[in-house]
């Protein structure tokens, strides 16, 4: 029952965000300069932001971007983690040691400086779409290391299991053995890592804005919408400003409810 409800919620949110162009009363960049920071009204269902943009519209459009791209980034990160951590744990020995040193190195790198360097290398005039894609790809590429450690440990435990012994004795080997028997058993871990990454990436995206990366103005994303909450001085006076946060929580929760049952019964 809760699963059905979650699916329904997800379907509604997805549909609404895809239909943003029709549903939104205004464009995400339209500035109602006569009404900045306005409270909710019939005209602006969630009020307006500091420069007079309709928050309801921005939430819809922002959902479209984040809902599509944060899971995509999580997918990239989890795939990399499975590829690097999982294979390392599966192979053991030298490959495992090399991969884990790489992971540790990756985790200990001064990311701030690296990102600054990346920003310095990128052109300032990237098209918004390119920036958005680059941002989430980057999040995906950067976010794999922590998950890789978990997956490596999981694969290592499997390596000497009877399960794999039996599978090898049947003549299975190499990539096929990994893909069929290791990945299927790491699925719960992969799912967990995937879901953990999504909210993290949504928030990281907002923080990347500090370095001139991330979803560029005037395009909205959950990250940029949440960042605006920092400027909200009194939430008790302006509770509607929390709407994007609420959407984020509902969506992430729904995702987890909807997918938790699809894992294999163990």
């Amino acid at each position: 029952m809760p699963r059905k409800l979650a699916c329904l919620v997800l379907a509604l949110v997805t549909a609404a965000s895809l239909a943003a162009s029709w549903l939104a009363p205004a464009g995400y960049a339209t500035q109602f300069r006569e009404a900045p920071n306005a409270p909710p009204s019939r005209r602006h269902l969630l009020g307006t932001d500091q420069v007079g943009r309709d928050l309801f519209s921005r939430t819809l459009y922002g959902t479209r971007i984040s809902l599509l791209l944060a899971p995509a980034a999580a997918l990239v990160a989890t795939t990399l983690a499975a590829g690097i951590g999982g294979v390392a744990g599966f192979l053991g020995g030298v490959p495992e040691r090399v991969a884990m040193s790489l992971t540790n190195l990756f985790l200990s790198l001064p990311w701030l400086f690296l990102l600054i360097t990346i920003r310095a290398l990128l052109p300032l005039n990237a098209s918004p779409l390119a920036s958005v894609l680059a941002t989430f790809l980057m999040l995906g590429l950067l976010g794999w290391a922590a998950s890789a450690r978990v997956l490596c440990a999981g694969a290592r435990a499997l390596r000497t299991s009877e399960l794999l012994l039996q599978a090898r004795a049947l003549g299975l080997h190499g990539p096929r053995l990994f893909a069929v028997h290791v990945i299927s058993n790491l699925k719960p871990v992969l799912y967990a890592q995937f879901w953990i990454s999504i909210p993290t990436f949504i928030l990281s995206e907002a923080n990347l804005g500090i370095l001139g990366l991330g979803v560029p103005e005037p395009m909205p994303s959950w990250g940029t919408l949440l960042k605006e909450l920092e400027g909200v001085t009194s939430l008790t006076e302006q509770p509607w400003k929390l709407a994007p946060l609420l959407v984020l929580i509902v969506v992430v929760t729904s995702f987890q409810l909807a997918l938790s049952r699809q894992e294999v019964p163990l």
């Binding site: 009877e162 399960l163 039996q166 004795a169 049947l170 003549g171 299975l172 080997h173 699925k187 163990l266």
Partner: peptide
């Protein structure tokens, strides 16, 4: 060796529950 394993020489282990893949 791989081409022999499972085709010319088979192996059956003790515990079916830990030798079968629970996820498939």
């Amino acid at each position: 060796m791989r081409t022999l394993r499972g085709s010319a020489i088979g192996l059956v282990l003790q515990s079916p529950l830990s030798s079968l893949n629970p996820a498939l």
